[in-house]
Amino acid sequence: MWEDNDDDADDDYDPEQERKRMEALPIFQKAEEIRELTRRIIDSIDDEEVRMIHSNIMLEDSIILSAKIAGAEAMDDFIMKMENATIIKIHARSLLTQTASLLFEEVLPEEYLRLLRKEIEAFRLLFRDWIKTFHKSPKEGDGWGLFVEDDDI
């Protein structure tokens, strides 16, 4: 069932080398910085109820950034890369929304949230450069016509 006819396909794959390549990407490094900064910001919220409300959303948003970068980098399929990129954008924007909410609630020093927003903006600029590296050579559409026009189905 799971037979692979190309036995030599994975012979050159080195997971440790791939991990190092991933960790060297500026966008991955920035995502990890955002994750750590988000964790520290959440930890500094004194109000337990506010922390509980925001922590799960913000931590999830920040963790997904680097996870989806890794997912996109692990494949060559343009559509799958773009799907991961879309999820990254959604979670980065959600994180921005959470900072606005925390600013409104005045539970943290404004400087903390401005710093996170600044890092997200730096991430956005890296993101724009990163997605330009995706090679638009899909063999077929995604069935939805979202990133590539599908042939009449």
Results as ranks from 00 to 15, higher is better:
residue 17 Q to P: 03
residue 23 E to Y: 05
residue 85 A to F: 01
residue 31 A to F: 00
residue 19 R to K: 11
residue 91 H to K: 13
residue 25 L to F: 06
residue 20 K to M: 11
residue 52 M to S: 10
residue 70 A to E: 11
residue 41 I to W: 01
residue 113 L to T: 01
residue 72 A to E: 04
residue 127 F to K: 00
residue 93 R to C: 12
residue 6 D to A: 12
residue 44 S to W: 03
residue 114 R to E: 15
residue 52 M to T: 15
residue 76 D to Q: 10
residue 5 N to V: 06
residue 22 M to K: 10
residue 96 L to Q: 12
residue 129 D to H: 03
residue 134 F to I: 01
residue 4 D to A: 08
residue 32 E to S: 07
residue 65 L to Q: 05
residue 79 I to Q: 03
residue 143 G to R: 07
residue 19 R to C: 06
residue 127 F to P: 00
residue 3 E to H: 10
residue 94 S to R: 15
residue 3 E to T: 10
residue 12 D to N: 15
residue 47 D to Y: 05
residue 22 M to I: 15
residue 113 L to Q: 02
residue 125 L to E: 13
residue 3 E to S: 08
residue 144 W to Y: 15
residue 34 I to N: 02
residue 103 L to S: 11
residue 76 D to P: 02
residue 25 L to Y: 04
residue 18 E to N: 12
residue 124 R to N: 11
residue 148 V to S: 05
residue 76 D to R: 06
residue 138 P to G: 07
residue 106 E to P: 07
residue 129 D to R: 10
residue 135 H to P: 04
residue 84 N to G: 03
residue 62 S to W: 02
residue 68 K to C: 06
residue 97 T to E: 07
residue 99 T to N: 04
residue 71 G to Y: 02
residue 96 L to F: 08
residue 24 A to V: 05
residue 52 M to F: 13
residue 133 T to W: 07
residue 97 T to Q: 04
residue 117 R to A: 14
residue 48 E to P: 05
residue 93 R to M: 12
residue 51 R to M: 08
residue 115 L to A: 15
residue 131 I to T: 07
residue 139 K to I: 14
residue 122 A to N: 13
residue 57 I to W: 07
residue 10 D to K: 05
residue 111 E to S: 08
residue 100 A to K: 09
residue 139 K to E: 14
residue 89 K to E: 13
residue 108 L to N: 04
residue 3 E to P: 00
residue 7 D to P: 11
residue 18 E to Q: 07
residue 131 I to K: 02
residue 72 A to V: 06
residue 29 Q to V: 10
residue 107 V to M: 07
residue 39 R to M: 07
residue 31 A to G: 02
residue 3 E to W: 05
residue 136 K to T: 08
residue 135 H to K: 14
